[in-house]
Amino acid sequence: MKLRRSMLFLPGANAAMLSTAFVYKPDSIMFDLEDAVSLREKDSARILVFNALQLPVYREIETVVRINPLNTPFGHLDLEAAVRAGVDVVRLPKTDSAEDVEVLEREVERIERACGREIGSTKLMAAIESASGVINALAIAKASPRLIGIALAGFDYVMDMQTERGDGTELFYARCAVLHAARAAKIDAFDVVWSDLNDEAGFLKEVDLIKRLGFNGKSLINPRQIELLHNAYAPTEEEVEYAGRVVTAAAEGERKGLGVVSLNGKMIDGPVIDHARRVLQRAEASGTRK
């Protein structure tokens, strides 16, 4: 069970950020070749990311590359660079249908064969950025066994909906649709970026909302947001203590061959035990909430 609370966006053309970002320890680092790179630097960013991915430090952290859409002059070259460099996950932007994922998967497999990489070792994620994408979220989420998650991308989505970012009401349906699709497909769900770096209270309010909805985590645009996010996702001491007792009771029940275990008169079943394990995993990753 891989923790994916924080996915830090890095502009692919920025050598300094690509050389140092691992020190901030997000759960995943996403090298962006799409919106954060100007048209005239697409080639240099692609080559820089190709080289940075081969740094030994990036073998210890999950790496993601956001490629340009495959119907642009850049998408296929971006994909060649990412897969050949050994990226963990390719993020497809502007995913409107399951067919978009299927086309990507076929291309990834072709490149894996061409460069001798293990078939299936490149994972995928799809970013949903339109009304069509939200409507087709379940089909997208189930389009490939390589998918590790789907993400909602807020800016393009609200543009497509002819609205703008506000208190979250404008994203409510899309968040719930993407989240339900991810859960039905048993993959992860990622929320939109929070772009106002100076509004820490607003960021934390949004994190609280998406955590309660059930998102695994959030795309981030600044390292400052990582610790805030991880702390918000960290369990309280009481939650850790209770989760520990649940896991211990479950282990004891299993040792005795009991199908169902009770703790202080409450039945503990599979989902409760799974939740307790997730609580302990988050506590192990970043301690208890401060």
């Binding site: 050598a15 690509l18 050389s19 080639d43 240099s44 080559i47 820089l48 190709f50 940075a52 081969q54």
Partner: peptide, 15 residues
């Protein structure tokens, strides 16, 4: 720059 950035910039300039 790190070695990976040196390689990348030389490769890009040459291409």
């Amino acid at each position: 720059a790190l070695d990976c950035a040196i390689r990348a910039r030389v490769q890009t300039a040459v291409m």
